[in-house]
Nucleic acid binder design. Structure first.
Length: 259
DNA sequence: ATGTCGAATAGGATTCGA
C-alpha cells in the first residue's frame, strides 16, 4: 500500500496538475490538504472516474482536507475532536482496507503566524488536541498513520536557512517541543528514520525564487504508530513535482507499507 | 524578507492567508 500526503494549495487551481500526478505516480491513497473548497464544489466525479473513492472535509475559501483512495474506506470521520466550536476543516480519518487495515488520518495543522498572537495560540491548542487523538490511536494498538502538512520544521536540518525561521511559528521552540511531545509518545517519523541527511524539503515558497535556489523546508510528515512502523518499507519525497507546470508550493511525501 | 499564488468579493483591484 502506497500512501502520499500532498498539500495541493487549491483544488480548482490544481485539478490538472493533480490529475497528471495521480496518472503518473498512482498512489493507492492520497491525503490532500488545502483543497480550499466546500464539499459540494470539489470535483468528486472527476476523480471517481479515475478510479478513486473521494472523501472530503472542506470549507469556503481556506483549509480543507480530502482522501482519495483506490482501496475501500471504512469508518470515515471528519474534524479533530476536542473543540466543538472549531469550524476550521483540518482533519479527516478513514480505515483503508488493504491486505491489512490501516487507519489513516489526514491533517492540515495551523500555520500559526504571526507569532505571538491568537493564531499561534490556536496552533498550540490544536497540537494539544492532536496529542489527545494520538494517544487514543496508540491505545488502539493497531496500524495507524497521521500524515499531512504539519507546518512544523522539526529540526534545523529540515530548513535550508534555519536562522531565518527561528522566531517563526513553524520552528519556534514551543512548536518543536509540542511536535516532539507527540512523537515521543511512541510514533515513528517515517522520513527521518529512513534518511538522516539534511537538505530534504517538502515546501518551497513561491516567492523570491525559493525553488530555483533550493531554499526549502521539510514540514509535511508521516507519523506512524508502532504497529504501522512495523509495516514501513520506504518513505520518500517526490520533490521533482515542484518543478512542473503550475505547481503547488508543497510536494508529495510518500510511505510504502507492507499492507 | 518577500522577486508569489489562490480565493473571495465583486464585477476589477483589493484583501487575506500562507
Amino acid at each position: 500500500m502506497r500512501i502520499a500526503t500532498f498539500n495541493i494549495n487549491g483544488i480548482k487551481a490544481r485539478i490538472n496538475a493533480l490529475s497528471d500526478w495521480l496518472d503518473e505516480s498512482k498512489p493507492d491513497v492520497a491525503l490532500l490538504q488545502e483543497i480550499k473548497s466546500v464539499d459540494e464544489n470539489f470535483p468528486r466525479e472527476h476523480f471517481e472516474d479515475m478510479g478513486y473513492i473521494v472523501e472530503t472535509h472542506g470549507q469556503k475559501g481556506f483549509n480543507g482536507v480530502a482522501i482519495l483512495s483506490k482501496l475501500p474506506l471504512e469508518d470515515v470521520t471528519r474534524g479533530l475532536p476536542g473543540d466543538d466550536s472549531d469550524e476550521q476543516a483540518r482533519w479527516i480519518e478513514a480505515t483503508v482496507m488493504g491486505e491489512k487495515a490501516v487507519r489513516v488520518c489526514g491533517l492540515y495543522l495551523p500555520n500559526g503566524n504571526p507569532c505571538p498572537g491568537p493564531k499561534y495560540d490556536y496552533k498550540l491548542a490544536w497540537m494539544e488536541r492532536l496529542k489527545t487523538r494520538a494517544i487514543a490511536l496508540l491505545d488502539a494498538e493497531e496500524p495507524a498513520l497521521m500524515a499531512g502538512d504539519y507546518n512544523v520544521i522539526p529540526q534545523d536540518e529540515d530548513a535550508a536557512h534555519p536562522e531565518v525561521w527561528q522566531e517563526d511559528a513553524l520552528a519556534r521552540p514551543e512548536t518543536r517541543a509540542a511536535f516532539r511531545e507527540i512523537l515521543n509518545l511512541g510514533f515513528t517519523e517515517a522520513f527521518r528514520v529512513r534518511t538522516q541527511a539534511p537538505g530534504h524539503y517538502s515546501f518551497w515558497d513561491y516567492q523570491a525564487g525559493a525553488w530555483d535556489r533550493n531554499d526549502g523546508i521539510r514540514i509535511d510528515h508521516h507519523l506512524l504508530t508502532p504497529q504501522c512502523a512495523d509495516l514501513l518499507k520506504e518513505c520518500w519525497i517526490e520533490s521533482n513535482v515542484r518543478g512542473r507546470e503550475k505547481p503547488s508550493d508543497h510536494v508529495p511525501v510518500w510511505v510504502e507499507l507492507d499492507a
